[in-house]
Design a binder for these strands. Sequence first.
DNA 1: GCCAACGTTGGC
DNA 2: GCCAACGTTGGC
Length: 163
Amino acid sequence: MTAKTGKNYWLMKSEPDVFSIEDLAKAPKKTTHWDGVRNYQARNFMRDSMKIGDMVFFYHSNADPSGIAGVAEVVKEGYPDFSAFDPKDVHFDEKSDSKNPTWMMVDIKHVETFKNLLPLEELRKSSALKDMVLLQKGSRLSVQPVTAEQWQAVLKLAKSKLA
DNA sequence: GCCAACGTTGGC
DNA sequence: GCCAACGTTGGC
């Protein structure tokens, strides 16, 4: 899906009750490792396609309201998700072998928090965004690609809300 | 809290 | 390899 040169764009979901964009902004070096993803498609994106410098929309799911909260960037490429090896971790996976890890993650760094969160409802109104993976019926992929056109359209929407 | 849609598991 | 049962996601 992303076998081209240049920057790629992504969207990553997090429940703000668990980890919000404010948490990311306050984290040491404004950076966190994106652990806990236990879905193969999302894993593949992090393992194979996300590159340093790629840009990420930080999406708040299960929130009031849900929507895009801001922007982050990839600062470390795919490496083993060590939370899978820790029996005390909620994301522990007994089937993941540390010598041949099943689950991978990346590190992302805070870039910007939108002044106003861009709610899902607004995104749905935009014809430029109708093909976004996020907006497809039944879509629940937690790490997903965003096209350059969609990226620009979202930024434009975010800016228009500043007034 | 409800529930539709999805991904995974496991019996056969 | 099918598919029912189950667990999870995530909007509302």
